[in-house]
Design a protein around this nucleic acid. Sequence first.
DNA 1: GCCCTGACTGCTA
DNA 2: TTAGCAGCCAGGG
Length: 119
Amino acid sequence: MPSFFDAIYVLVRQIPPGKVASYGHIATLVGHPRAARTVGWALASLRSAEEVDVPWQRVINAEGRISIRSLRHAAEEQRSLLEAEGIEFDSRGFIDWRRFGWEGLSAVEVEAILARNAE
DNA sequence: GCCCTGACTGCTA
DNA sequence: TTAGCAGCCAGGG
């Protein structure tokens, strides 16, 4: 059974290129619907470990927008990375969930992926 | 082991 | 409709 952080990283890796998911969405998938802040915290600490292959830029807030409080340059970098994958921002900086939102995985799929990762 | 912090969220006023 | 605020969870000091 991977730790909470590991579960987050594993699920974020499941987000396909050109798609985005919200912090709350990821938190729900790992079994903690109210732990969105923890997801953000996990990704924030992840960013310092660049060798880890996790597409952190594909995780944004519930509004479909980048809202990094500190690390302003990281927010700009995130937007660049997403645009490079074909994701478009409207004039207000919002992403269209209908076009780029990730559908997520079923509980069964999540369980299988986490179990595989735990090996 | 307690206290603080944080890339969030949803409800109230 | 916009702004404030209190939960939520885990890691680090």
